[in-house]
């Protein structure tokens, strides 16, 4: 098997699937001006992820996802309880809770995880796109060697697109005018919780592969890149994904292969490169929109 199929394609697939999963749900967060919620979720789920790992004794997907979900729910409940008992603003409470959860996760990782795990704090921050590879069994197909992370990301991407397709009408009404939606929708609260749950699922699935910071970029950037051109919610999503996916691919190749053009052997951090390129594309896209408006 050549290096592209074994190393580059799995990493690219993971990055693109994470873009679809996070970007689709992120479109709603951006419309609701809640993209920083993604940052809070990405931090808060860490202790659960690590605890799941420790309890199951292996990097078992189910245990880690269950742990992450538990930690996410616990952080949301704790934030709500603190807000009910105090008069602190939401941003401050969020800051207190997500940093505490993240710190707990880091301590668990460093003290309990010991040396043998492939889950370490820097992979939590910067992702592990570089360590994904397809190891096809002797005589087996490429597909048989695809790592579990990629299947998980594929499931997250499908879930995110289905969520969007099924609830777009309600979510748009809620994002546009929350007061009106609270009267006209039967259970706006349930809709908000469903969005939070789906977003958390996408983030947890993407988290291990791309790291906590790229998750924030993947949530916010596709929608923000499309925002100056979009004329509808669906248009913002499809344009955002259509522009982001090639950027993600270009950034991955720049990180993995550009250094060798300059004669250095080590690749650059791919997740970081993707984040930089996606973020830079937002003001660039606004500039393009300004030029188009002037020409029109």
């Amino acid at each position: 098997m050549n290096a592209f199929l074994a190393i580059d394609l799995p990493a690219l697939l993971a990055a693109v699937l994470a873009t679809v999963a996070c970007g689709t749900l992120g479109n709603w967060l951006v419309l609701r001006k809640e993209s920083m919620t993604a940052d809070a979720i990405a931090h808060a789920v860490l202790p659960g992820l690590v605890a799941g790992y420790l309890v199951s004794g292996s990097r078992s997907m189910g245990a880690m996802l269950a742990g992450a979900a538990l930690a996410g729910v616990a952080s949301v409940l704790l934030s709500a309880a603190i807000r009910a008992r105090t008069r602190l603003e939401a941003g401050a409470v969020l800051g207190v809770v997500f940093t505490a959860f993240f710190a707990l996760g880091v301590v668990l990782l460093e003290t309990q995880g010991a040396r043998q795990i492939d889950l370490d704090p820097s992979c939590v921050l910067f992702g592990s796109l570089e360590t994904l590879f397809v190891a096809a069994p002797e005589g087996g197909s490429w597909l048989a060697g695809v790592p579990g992370e990629i299947w998980l990301l594929a499931a997250a991407a499908v879930l995110a697109l289905a969520f969007h397709a099924l609830l777009a009408k309600e979510l748009a009404a809620l994002a546009f005018d929350p007061l009106h939606a609270r009267l006209s929708l039967r259970s706006p609260r349930a809709l908000e919780r469903a969005l939070l749950a789906a977003t958390s699922a996408a983030i947890v699935a993407s988290f291990a592969a791309v790291g906590s910071i790229l998750v924030v970029a993947l949530v916010a950037c596709p929608a923000l890149i499309a925002a100056p051109h979009a004329r509808s919610v669906g248009g913002q999503l499809s344009l955002g994904l259509a522009l982001s996916i090639p950027l993600v691919g270009a950034a991955y190749f720049a990180a993995a292969h550009a250094p060798s053009l300059f004669g250095t052997a080590t690749a650059l951090n791919a997740a970081g490169m993707i984040a930089v390129l996606l973020v830079a594309a937002v003001p660039a896209s606004h500039g393009v929109a300004r030029v188009i408006r002037r020409l029109a």
Binding site: K169, F176, D177, A181, S184, A227, S232, G235, Q236
Partner: peptide, 23 residues
Amino acid sequence: FPATARDVVAMGLVARIGLFRRT
């Protein structure tokens, strides 16, 4: 918000159209 006037007016029918159906 990225929506046309018609999109916004159709939001008034969201409850009537019902869950999981398109406008």
